[in-house]
């Protein structure tokens, strides 16, 4: 079986192709980069995706060494994400499915991040930490769905880093820039540490950090923001470990911010105390990609899920991850 996954929730337009065992045959992406000092403007990003879609598709097919007719299943990211961007991927997916008579599966983007890391390391049921621009959530599969054991109650950690970088006049995405600046900082500035059980908030950190930019070295602000925000996340994961009603076989970290080594190391220090291993994908697979969408498509096809009518494959900008049924885990 050959599965194609199309990703277009935000800045990345990607096409991934995998075989029936989940081996990656192609992973091609084009990324929209907003001008310095700006965030993603949805219509500009969508315009970028429209221009790049055909190239990305062609390159992916040639990388895999196949034609469209060799594809057995097509999956696309239905949401959550930016409407204009989502529609580009959905339109391409529907066209290919109709034109070539292939089954079409709409996929939850976040489930893609989780399933990719679970699949890659053949994990049974890990505790997931999903950290990106769209999510900052702690999840475990329980009773046929990914249940949220903790999450941000305001902005995501990706958002925190991106906006801080933007305010400081740095490039998008902010995560990698903030991380390298933090290595040169060391003064711990006072930032709000808001943890509510296993949930948390970051907007207080952002507001205070932007103020501190005026009076302190950016390196120290970067260090303090990472230190406080990541400590909150790791503590929430530690609290969630206790809340899960069964044993997990590790901690899986995914999403764009998973590439941050400071966060990864902190998580490792915590996990070691409980004899757990932290599983992280090769960095290139943490960011949005088509492979994560293809992996979910493969799971759905293997589980015998009936592909929905074309009329009910519309995009969904707001879509809770714990509202998605996971039939292959039932």
């Amino acid at each position: 079986m050959i599965v194609m996954g199309i990703e277009s929730t935000a800045h990345t337009f990607g096409v991934g192709i995998i075989d029936g065992e989940g081996n990656i045959l192609a992973d091609v992406r084009a990324r929209y980069t907003p001008p310095r000092g700006m965030g993603i403007e949805p219509f500009n990003a969508a315009e970028h995706h429209s221009k790049e879609a055909a190239n990305v598709l062609r390159d992916a097919l040639s990388e895999a060494g196949i034609g469209v007719e060799d594809i057995d299943v097509i999956a696309f990211s239905r949401g959550p994400g930016l409407g204009p961007c989502l529609r580009v991927g959905a339109s391409l997916a529907r066209y290919l499915a109709l034109r070539h008579g292939k089954p079409l599966y709409p996929v939850h983007h976040g489930v893609g991040h989780l399933e990719l890391v679970t699949h890659y390391y053949s994990l049974r049921n890990p505790l997931h930490l999903l950290v990106s621009g769209g999510h900052t959530s702690i999840l475990v599969l329980n009773e046929c769905r990914y249940r949220v054991f903790g999450e941000t109650l305001d902005i995501t950690v990706g958002n925190l880093l991106d906006v801080l970088a933007r305010e400081a006049g740095l490039d998008f995405p902010g995560g990698p820039v903030i991380e390298s600046l933090a290595e040169k900082g060391g003064e711990l500035l006072d930032l709000p540490y808001t943890i509510i059980g296993t949930s948390f908030q970051f907007s207080g950190i952002l507001t205070k950090a932007i103020q501190l930019l005026k009076s302190h070295r950016i390196e120290d602000v970067a260090y303090s923001v990472q230190e406080v925000a990541f400590s909150i996340i790791v503590e929430a994961v530690e609290r969630a470990l206790r809340a899960v009603p069964f044993d997990v076989d590790g901690i899986a970290i995914s999403g764009g911010v998973a590439s941050n080594d400071t966060l990864y190391k902190k998580l490792g220090v915590m996990a070691e105390r409980y004899g757990l291993k932290v599983y992280r994908l090769p960095k290139r697979l943490n960011g949005d990609n088509g492979v994560q969408i293809a992996v979910v498509g493969l799971r759905m096809a293997l589980a015998g899920v009936e592909p929905p009518e074309l009329s009910s494959t519309g995009v969904v900008q707001r879509w809770r991850i714990d509202e998605v049924d996971i039939p292959w885990a039932c």
Binding site: V140, R147, F149, G197, P245
Partner: peptide, 17 residues
Amino acid sequence: AIDLDSLRRSLDSTVPS
């Protein structure tokens, strides 16, 4: 209300049904 929310989230994730 924060306590109520924490309790409800704990129920939702641990014993959804």
